[in-house]
Nucleic acid binder design. Structure first.
Lengths: 213, 213
DNA sequence: TAGATTGTTAATCGATTAACAATC
DNA sequence: TAGATTGTTAATCGATTAACAATC
């Protein structure tokens, strides 16, 4: 059943985008699409789309194409949007607050249950429908509520230490926004590093090469 | 002189990370490093590092390695950190504010000169050391100050329209945070799409495949 | 000089694209 | 049935890795 283990990172990175485009098509009331049409919208080749989808199973129908709603829900299931992973945010500074309120976690398989900060000045503040807890409460909170995903919005210097501690408390997945390449040596822990600074530098590189001035 | 045009996106995407590691080495007072040592730190192969760097020139010295400070500044120059591209943020909601205050633009070749929003309720608010301007002032502001980079922190639905308008006002590069794949058909415009939602879904996929429950 | 490590070419590997038989 | 479009195999392309001669 699990073809999954062999699916390459390049394919997986494209799944959320497929999911997004299919959701948009659903909203527009389209119920059927061919790899050819989708390739036009997404600026991929039809070949690649068919190849990608077939990593997970034959979702299409020869001579007809793909049923949008079915494909959308299949990809959703593969991504895990039907799960509700208990998730905590560590760091309630500007970025932590913005991520907490700006990202729709529940439609992406996550249930946001806590936000923590080390600054006693801001514990008690409301962020979305959560209340900032002091980091000292983390151990007890994790023991009781058993979160499995942590969003790290903390300074570089604190990241590795907090992450190791969280692994000890049962966290299995990290969404890391600190300017630090988090790598966990434990088995069966997943990390998604965001690196906004690197992203901006990539843009600067592009600008540097087109803007002569 | 410009080997640049032929350098692949995969290499360019790695440059900010090299820059970051070299900066860290400088801070630690290391002044010499071999591709072998760096490969250990960065979890790349030494071969790849030498291959990558040689896209831009021979920065090393046979039998010795690379001088950290020199390599750091060379890569910085390639990325364009010594430029000061005038940059505006469009959208002063949670995310716009967080990006504005959280990211160090000036060390990444950007000079943040304005932040705009369509909500009259928040015009006049301070964000970092900027004051939120109403979006109606955008045209005049651009004519006078000539920004070249725009950071888009606006809803999906508004993105394409605002981007097209900004191109007309002289913007050459977009850092796009809306959940929308911005693509500009004009020549010589660069776009860096961030897609935090897709990043979270990639993590959810990973979590879904390790957390059995 | 001997040792180390680069710059660069060649070999391998993986990802993308093309082609087409299977089939709805 | 004929037409369309998938699923899948084969060909191509690009990126990574290995090897080694050049040279500091």
């Amino acid at each position: 059943m699990n073809k999954n283990s062999s699916v390459s990172a390049s394919v997986i990175k494209r799944l959320p985008r497929y999911y997004r485009f299919l959701g948009e098509l659903m909203r527009r009331g389209v119920d059927r699409i061919s790899s050819r049409e989708l390739s036009g919208m997404m600026k991929l080749t039809a070949s690649q789309i068919r190849q990608d989808l077939n990593c997970f199973g034959g979702f299409g129908q020869q001579g007809y194409g793909y049923r949008v709603e079915e494909l959308h829900s299949e990809i959703g299931r593969i991504l895990g949007v039907d799960r509700q992973f208990r998730t905590v945010v560590i760091g309630a500074g500007n970025l932590g607050r913005a991520i907490t309120t700006h990202i729709n976690f529940s439609t992406r398989g996550c249930d946001l249950i806590g936000i923590f900060d080390s600054d006693p000045e801001i514990t008690g503040d409301r962020v979305g429908d959560l209340t900032v807890r002091h980091i000292d409460e983390l151990d007890r909170f994790c023991t009781e509520r058993k979160p499995v995903i942590a969003v790290l919005c903390i300074p570089k210097a604190a990241t590795q230490e907090i992450a190791d501690r969280l692994v000890g408390l049962g966290i299995k997945a990290f969404w890391n926004f600190s300017h630090y390449d988090l790598s966990i040596d434990h088995e069966n822990i997943v990390v998604e590093n965001v690196h906004l600074g690197d992203s901006l530098l990539t843009l600067t590189y592009g600008a540097n090469n087109i803007i002569v001035e």
